[in-house]
């Protein structure tokens, strides 16, 4: 889906880079480590650790909250996943937070659990696909110009551009269906390389951009 998370090449996000700090610790504040662990456990409880459902929840965190803080974004996604799976009532976290700071607030009643399920071909995301790959190294490929309405790993900036297949990668679960629990729908995956001048303007810096795309995103370029 289109949204704030799809940042590649979007000028509204341009600005000064954050400083490099090789000594930066994984968690700047103790709560960040707890938010990291609690979100992983929330996703385990809500979706059996469906990574694609987690990413899709991150994409649906309200824009202001998404941009404000990285682990804040994780907390937002954890709440979306827990509410959607019926493990927590909407507003339950806010009510608990107010209670913790001393307000007289009742916890909302828990809803009926409604955990989504999906048949899985095993752990992780790598799968085997019986059909032969549709494309080979050297093929010129493009994608649809349409934005997917749900989760996708096809960013806006490569949509409808023409690139060249430069490598075949291991076949993988398709995020677009797995995120919605429709099915794993494994696909061949290709590294596709674009010339910067085909992605951007003719006066762009010279460079190449390589991105991994799932077979069902691709069509042969004319």
């Amino acid at each position: 889906m289109d949204g704030v998370h799809d940042m590649g090449g979007r000028p509204e996000h341009f600005g000064p880079l954050k400083p490099l700090d090789p000594a930066e610790k994984p968690f700047g504040e103790p709560w960040e480590g707890r938010a990291f662990a609690v979100t992983l456990l929330a996703n385990r409880a809500a979706t059996a650790s469906n990574l694609h459902a987690f990413r899709h929840a991150l994409e649906r965190v309200p824009e202001k909250e998404y941009l404000a803080d990285y682990y804040g974004r994780w907390l937002g996604s954890a709440e979306i996943l827990l509410v959607e799976s019926g493990l927590l009532a909407p507003g339950a976290v806010e009510a608990r937070a107010r209670k913790l700071r001393g307000e007289a607030v009742e916890d909302p009643a828990d809803p009926e659990p409604n955990k989504p399920t999906m048949e899985s071909g095993g752990g992780g995301n790598l799968r085997s696909v019986e059909a032969a790959p549709a494309f080979a190294v050297g093929d010129r490929v493009t994608t649809s110009s349409d934005a997917a309405s749900g989760h996708t790993r096809l960013p806006g900036y490569v949509r409808a551009k023409v690139g060249t297949v430069t490598a075949l990668r291991p076949a993988q679960v398709l995020p677009d269906t797995a995120a919605h629990f429709i099915g794993e729908n494994p696909q061949h995956v290709y590294s596709v390389t674009y010339d910067a001048h085909d992605l951007w303007r003719a006066d762009s810096e010279p460079f190449s951009l390589t991105i991994d795309l799932y077979e069902n995103y691709l069509e042969r370029a004319q």
Binding site: E29, P30, L41, A42, D69, V93, R96, A97, L100
Partner: peptide
């Protein structure tokens, strides 16, 4: 307003702990 991310984390953690989900 006033619910910072540390408090929000604590709230979420306590809800998961008491449900046996963490």
């Amino acid at each position: 307003p006033g619910i910072d991310l540390a408090l929000r984390t604590e709230a979420l953690e306590s809800l998961l702990l008491e449900r046996g989900l963490a």
